[in-house]
Design a protein around this nucleic acid. Sequence first.
DNA 1: GCTGTAACCTGTCGGC
DNA 2: TGCCGACAGGTTACAG
Length: 286
Amino acid sequence: MPELPEVETVRRGLAPVFEGGRLARVEARRPDLRFPFPPRFVERLEGQRVDTLRRRAKYLLAGLNSGETLLMHLGMSGSFRIEDGDVATPGEFHHPRSGASAHDHVVFHFETGARVVYNDPRRFGSMTLIEAGELATHPLLRDVGVEPLGPDFGAERLLALLAGARTPLKSALLDQRRIAGLGNIYVCEALHRARLSPLREAGSLSRPRARALAAAIPQVLQEAIEAGGSTLRDHRQADGALGYFQHAFAVYDREGAACRHRRCAGTISRIVQSGRSTFYCPQCQL
DNA sequence: GCTGTAACCTGTCGGC
DNA sequence: TGCCGACAGGTTACAG
């Protein structure tokens, strides 16, 4: 499911429950997700207070008062929902396509009575604990690239990140070691907005084209966050609400439809790059 | 090194 | 209606 806007939307929804909340009990209903849970996973969480809930790339990081950090990734189909005590909040939803609770793998019970349930049918998500002081060097985080919504991102940084890369621009932008948080949808959307072909060699960008792309990426992400992310199949906000950015897609999943750029008579095409669908307008994305 | 592919797992959808 | 293959928002191990 989730790219940066969806993860950020989830973070904002969970923060009021997590931040300042104390974990009274944690249920891990299976031994693993994508990876096995770390040793004594539940015991290390129970009794802890969550001080902060942050996002880095597509990861959620819950800072615990023990100094450890709970690292969570939603994979392709992961989602959280908040339940309030014995009575579901109005926003609670039964996942429409996940087969009810069969895929509720982790449940966080807070002292307030609130519960946060992690559901993940495909189990590509992951959770682990990182010890104090090891965040920067942890294998899952140490190679993660620049935050596209952060102050360090811009045209010059983008040019440096892509310099010499022979791979297609689409593939380079999906590489989390370069830019952190972009996924298939928002790479397609940002390339269309910047009028750049996904097939173009990544290292071939001129400075003006890099400026256009460096502007388009945060624009698209910010607009998606404001829309609550994109709901295709799985993504819900933590309160159960849908995201709405899918209605604003210019290219993603619009094969055969008319290009939305002014004065472009092109038709959106779908091709496959690195085994994944790319949507673009061959007429105006050069 | 860099790059592309296959694999992980489950559910959905379209075609026959 | 039922079966089968293709496909899905991500990441990583591996081969070339």
